[in-house]
Amino acid sequence: MTVQKTQDMFSLMSRLIKAEWLKTEHPRRLLLFMILPAVVTALIGWLAGHHKDIFLDITAWQEVWQTILFFWSSFAFSFFIVILAAKFNGIEHSNQSWRLMLTLPLRPCHLFFAKLSIEWGLLLFSNIMMVLVYSSAFLIGSHTDMAGNSLDLSLVNSFLLLPFVMLPVLFIQHSLSWFFSNTRFPVIFGTICTLMSVPVSEFFDAKGWLFYPWAYGTRFVNDRLNISIGQKITVIPISQSEFFIFAVVLFAVASFLVTAYLKRKDIH
């Protein structure tokens, strides 16, 4: 019985995710948008290597990648979350199609998590593209004369886990975009919070920034990055694995609460 229910649930969720993709206006353009950071990063890396000959200078090479990864994990990734959450929920708000969707054989929480899943899937895709570009760059670099230039697997690992650590931010942005019919509010809110992520993570140098999920990307990837290039880190209150578990548990608790709330809420 439970196995059957689980299968039914997976079947429903996969159909809902497919439906969300079918609903997307210009899906190919969206995919191109999602690989844009990786393309831009590859171009920057190529231009930097080609013009400055930094393959011979390990410090310059690392600086280029530190800047790119910092920008990606602290700003661009969060900003992509804001855009995707607003896009996938905005389609229902702008067409006033909530009732149309929710009189189909599904519950509000199914639609909530289907939208969240597709947003997360696209973020994961974009992040994997970035990881591939980063890894490729170092693999290419390792064939040059640049001594000591090797791929830091722990950094790649941190990089890969970024979409998991940023789940709380995705959850907040997704919920705001779901509940507010005017998507401008969550977009402005998310953009401001994203821009504040670095100052907040620097200002609360103890555990205070744990209450500010937009700082998670900065702390999770960049602290690892700084360790990788030998800089002294003063702001790590918990280990990376604890941090990862903390973010995922935070997301799970919030999901449980919103599911309970949606079960009781009228759909106006």
């Binding site: 609903k23 206006e25 009189t103």
Partner: peptide, 29 residues
Amino acid sequence: LERMGCLVDSPSLYNHMTAREFLKIGCVI
């Protein structure tokens, strides 16, 4: 709901789609 069809309120449809694209969504779900 699996055995029901509903038209609630004024028709709220996805304006950027064609009729077939729109109905495909219902078929998938």
